[in-house]
Deep mutational scan, measured.
Amino acid sequence: MTSCHIAEEHIQKVAIFGGTHGNELTGVFLVKHWLENGAEIQRTGLEVKPFITNPRAVKKCTRYIDCDLNRIFDLENLGKKMSEDLPYEVRRAQEINHLFGPKDSEDSYDIIFDLHNTTSNMGCTLILEDSRNNFLIQMFHYIKTSLAPLPCYVYLIEHPSLKYATTRSIAKYPVGIEVGPQPQGVLRADILDQMRKMIKHALDFIHHFNEGKEFPPCAIEVYKIIEKVDYPRDENGEIAAIIHPNLQDQDWKPLHPGDPMFLTLDGKTIPLGGDCTVYPVFVNEAAYYEKKEAFAKTTKLTLNAKSIRCCLH
C-alpha cells in the first residue's frame, strides 16, 4: 500500500463567511444568496454554514464600524470581559468565536472560507496562513488546477512579526479568498463568478477527501510576504508620492531593483532599492491607505505537500 500522510479526520463542519468587511460585496451577495438557497454549497455528509460576519458594517456598506474585524481574533480580544464599552467588532468577534470556535479547541469548525474583495488587480487569490499544512496545500492545488487556465495565486502570510489574527483563524483550516479588482461597494459579475467557482472547487475537494480519495504528493507556487511598504510621506505625515503608473495593476509581476515604484507630484520617480527582485501584491489597495500600506513585497517559492487521505471509520 502506498505510504501517505493521513489527515486527522474527515471534514464535518464548514463555514463560509461574507461581510467580514461590509463594503466587499461579492461575499456579502453570495452568502445572502446561499442563506436563501444553499443547494449549490451542500455536499453529502458535510455541514456547510453561510454566515454574515459583520452585519452592521454590511448594512452601512462600510469596511467596519469601530475597528477591523479581520485583525482582532487574538486571545487578548477574544478574552476581554464582555461589555457595551467594547468596540462593536470586538464584541462581534467574541460572538463569532462562540459560534464557530472556540479558537484553538477541538470544537472549532474544521474549515472557514472568508470571502473578500480587493481594489487591487490580484485576480483569484487564496490566502494561506501555514506553509506546513498538507491538507490546505492539497486543497489549493486542486482549486488552482480546477480553475486553469484562469490564474489563481496563493498568498502566504506566515511571518515572524506580522500577526494578522484573522476572522477565519478560529477554524482548524483557515482559508482566505480574495478576488479583484473590484471597487468597494460595487458588485461585478465576473468577480462574483470567479469567487463562486473557487468555493465550488473547494467544496468538491472536501467531498472527494471525505469519500476516501487519496491525493498524491503535489507542489504549489506561493508568494510569501516579506514586508509592507508605506507611501513616501512629508514631515507632516502626508502622502508625498503615489503608486507609479508602471507599478499600478502589476500585482504578482516581478519588481526589480531600480524599477519605478512611486511618483511625486513634481514628476520624480522613486525606484525600488535593494538588490532583490520582489513580487508586489495589494498594490494601491483602497482599504490600506489608513493602514499606511502602499503594497506588500513578496518572494516566490514552492511548497510541497505529502499525499493525504481521509481516515475512514
Rank of each mutant, 00 (worst) to 15 (best):
P216C: 04
E285H: 13
T269C: 08
E95R: 13
A240K: 14
E285S: 14
F295W: 06
I112P: 01
P102N: 12
N134S: 13
D204T: 02
D193Q: 10
V90P: 10
N236L: 15
P151E: 13
T277G: 04
P102S: 09
I11P: 06
A287P: 14
I65D: 15
D66W: 07
A93E: 08
F73M: 09
I225T: 09
N284W: 01
G38S: 13
I127M: 09
K224V: 04
K13I: 04
I270C: 05
T20C: 08
C124M: 08
D74K: 10
E129R: 09
V28Q: 14
N54K: 04
H201P: 03
V154T: 06
E24C: 14
I226N: 08
N284T: 04
D193V: 06
Q138V: 02
F73H: 11
Y164Q: 07
W252P: 01
E214P: 10
W252H: 08
H141T: 04
P149T: 04
E290Q: 09
Y223W: 05
P151V: 05
K268Y: 07
D266V: 04
D114H: 07
Y289V: 12
K172I: 04
L99K: 07
H244A: 13
S131E: 06
E293D: 08
R132P: 07
D107M: 15
L301S: 10
L46N: 03
H313F: 07
V186S: 07
E227D: 10
K292H: 15
K213D: 12
T119M: 01
N133D: 06
M261Y: 00
P280V: 03
T2S: 15
I143F: 00
N117V: 04
R168Q: 13
P50T: 11
I177E: 00
A241M: 05
G27P: 06
I270T: 06
E36D: 15
R168A: 09
H98L: 13
E89A: 05
P260V: 03
I226Y: 08
M198A: 09
K300M: 13
I11L: 14
L162M: 07
P280S: 03
Q94N: 12
T302S: 08
H98I: 11
Q12W: 07
R196D: 03
L263Q: 11
Y142N: 03
Y231C: 02
E293P: 15
L147S: 04
D204G: 01
F282C: 13
I226P: 01
M82E: 10
L263V: 13
L192K: 02
K59N: 12
D104A: 07
S83F: 07
G38T: 11
R168L: 12
C124W: 00
G267M: 08
C276D: 14
F100I: 14
P271F: 13
D114S: 06
D234T: 11
E8V: 12
R63L: 05
K291V: 07
S169L: 05
F140C: 06
I111R: 00
E227C: 07
V28Y: 15
H33K: 14
R196L: 02
L86I: 13
V90G: 12
H208G: 07
L263R: 07
P181W: 01
A148E: 09
E129M: 07
D251G: 02
K60F: 10
Y164T: 15
P254A: 15
G267I: 03
D107N: 09
A39N: 12
D114N: 05
A287V: 09
K144F: 04
A296W: 12
Q138Y: 02
T20Y: 03
K49E: 08
P280L: 02
G38N: 11
Y279K: 00
A15M: 00
H116C: 13
P174Y: 10
L255Y: 05
E9Q: 07
S83Y: 10
G273I: 12
T269E: 06
I72V: 10
P232S: 00
L69M: 13
M82D: 08
R43F: 04
M198L: 11
G212Y: 04
F135M: 05
I11R: 05
L192I: 15
E211H: 07
C61V: 13
R233K: 12
T62F: 15
F262H: 00
F100G: 08
I177L: 07
A171S: 12
H208E: 06
G212R: 05
D114Y: 06
R92N: 06
G180Y: 01
V283A: 02
P271S: 14
E293S: 11
F29L: 07
R168C: 10
R233A: 09
S307D: 05
C61M: 09
C218T: 08
H208M: 14
Y289I: 10
K292L: 10
E89I: 04
H116V: 00
E95T: 10
E227Y: 03
P87A: 15
M261I: 10
D204V: 02
N54W: 04
D130A: 04
S120D: 01
P245Y: 04
H256T: 15
D193L: 07
K103F: 14
Y64E: 13
E129N: 11
S108F: 11
K13R: 10
A219R: 08
E221W: 01
L255G: 00
N23T: 05
C61L: 06
E290I: 13
L272T: 08
H244F: 00
K197L: 15
Q138N: 00
N54I: 04
F135K: 00
G27W: 02
T125W: 00
I96G: 09
E84Y: 14
